[in-house]
């Protein structure tokens, strides 16, 4: 139990911030953080040390965040008839506590465009930009070669730009 507490102390901020950048809601990020640490607690005995502990925790966090978003998208059929908004795609107001308030609108557009990206593209942007990881670290987490990660990042940036432009056109900015 002490080992688990040490892991929590070392990684809770990292887990929480990754989750927060995926879902942009405090309550959801807390739920994901709780889920991640329960998974860590259950699986720590099976941790084989092939990657670093940090990489392993990152992977669990990314998978838990993506699972959470997927579950949110899966509404019952009758509800999906009435709600066009599925998941985070069309969230109007981003409730990310870490954004600079003076630039709230710019951040809103930014995260809305991010939420329209495919999972892997969103992940690579989050790891390299908000987490500030190196290509090598991000590649290890995503189980990709450095070159493959670089090209994924390139595609992600292109798509992101398109989505951001779409976002602006829809809002008539």
């Amino acid at each position: 139990m002490n080992d688990f507490e040490n892991i929590y102390d070392a990684y809770n901020e990292m887990v929480y911030n990754v989750a927060l950048n995926y879902v942009q809601q405090i309550e959801d990020a807390e739920e994901i953080t709780q889920d991640v640490f329960l998974k860590v607690f259950k699986r720590i005995k099976n941790f084989d040390g092939k990657s670093t502990l940090k990489t392993w925790v990152y992977r669990i966090t990314i998978n838990a965040s993506l699972d959470f978003i997927r579950k949110k998208k899966r509404r019952p059929i009758f509800q999906s008839l009435f709600y066009e908004d599925r998941g985070l795609k069309n969230v109007v107001d981003i409730k990310h506590p870490g954004i600079i308030l003076e630039q709230k609108e710019a951040y809103n557009a930014l995260f809305r465009a991010m939420n329209r990206l495919p999972e892997r593209q969103k992940t690579v942007i989050l790891l390299l930009k908000t987490e500030g990881l190196s290509i090598k670290e991000a590649a290890a987490i995503m189980n990709l070669k450095n070159k493959a990660l670089e090209s994924l990042f390139h595609r992600a940036k292109q798509k992101f730009l398109k989505e951001h432009q779409k976002e602006k056109d829809e809002k008539g900015v």
Binding site: Y8, Y16, A29, G98, A106, I125, T130
Partner: peptide
């Protein structure tokens, strides 16, 4: 835009989360 992302503040989870976990 990417610089804006880099400037997203790092947050700390609320203190009640640890005992809950």
């Amino acid at each position: 835009m990417l610089v804006l992302l880099e400037h997203t503040k790092r947050m700390r989870p609320q203190s009640g989360l640890k005992p809950r976990i």
